[in-house]
Amino acid sequence: MKRRHAETRAALLFASPWILGFCIFLLYPLAASIYYSFCDYSVLRPPVWIGMDNYRELLQDEVFWKTLYNTLYYAAFALPLSAAVALALALLLNTKVRGMAIYRTIFFVPSLVPMISLAVLWLWIFNGEHGLINALLGLIGIKGPNWLSDPNWSKPALILMSMWGAGHAMVIYLAGLQDVPQSLYEAAELDGADWWARTRHVTLPTISPVILFNIIMGIIGTLQVFAVPYVMFPGGSPARSTYFYTMYLFDNAFIYQKMGYACAMGWIMFLIILVLTMAALKFSEKRVHYG
């Protein structure tokens, strides 16, 4: 009995940084954020309770809907495309070719590039007049668009960029692929399954939990996309086509000093993440195979 107490005391001491951190940097801010979302609040003055006004205003705020649309549009393309690239690269590397480690490094390194450098680098590559992409397109006789100033091409530019960073997910998939039991492949081969059949019926089902995990993390990350468009497209230019949810939230909080409004936006984002995650889990119920 005495030892039990001693152990609990020691444990609470060991866990105390996190218990404190959890309360100060998470629990309190969460509670405060709910409260502020019902208030008219700028850091300069104390919050004033205004009930549901922030949420009501949000529903009628055209910019809010625009940024939500932009963000979901971006997520709808960037997520599946970069997941497909990552999975394809991982499947290629998993064929046990020689030089696998070198290829893996080449595909992985771009995902290490800090976001600010990423933004600056692609500003240059997408540059309408002197950028590399349009120069290469010019070589084969295509006049490239003004990626950065044409509202029809700004989002596709960002989606293309996102695929360049697929190396991170590729590493996760590759590790998942290496965990697929060899015996399953051998059994499939005996049944006369070709590469594609083995991939579809053995590989993909076995790593489906990894895919699901990556997609959920992807949803959470994509809805928070901020630094790259913030640097590449000041103010969400052109024509607000790259004005994303978190950028508008940031502007409300720190430019317009509408901090209660920003908190309300944060909670709506959280709600969207929860709904999408639930949907992903529900959708995957029959498709994901936990072995």
Binding site: P29, Y36, F250, A253, M259, A262, C263, G266, F270
Partner: peptide, 25 residues
């Protein structure tokens, strides 16, 4: 507490951005 800890990974930073800023202020 561990389960709650894991669940907090779902909380996007923008939700708590304002109160954390106010706290540091």
């Amino acid at each position: 507490l561990f389960a709650i800890t894991l669940a907090t990974m779902m909380v996007p930073f923008p939700v708590i951005m304002v109160p954390v800023y106010a706290l540091f202020k």
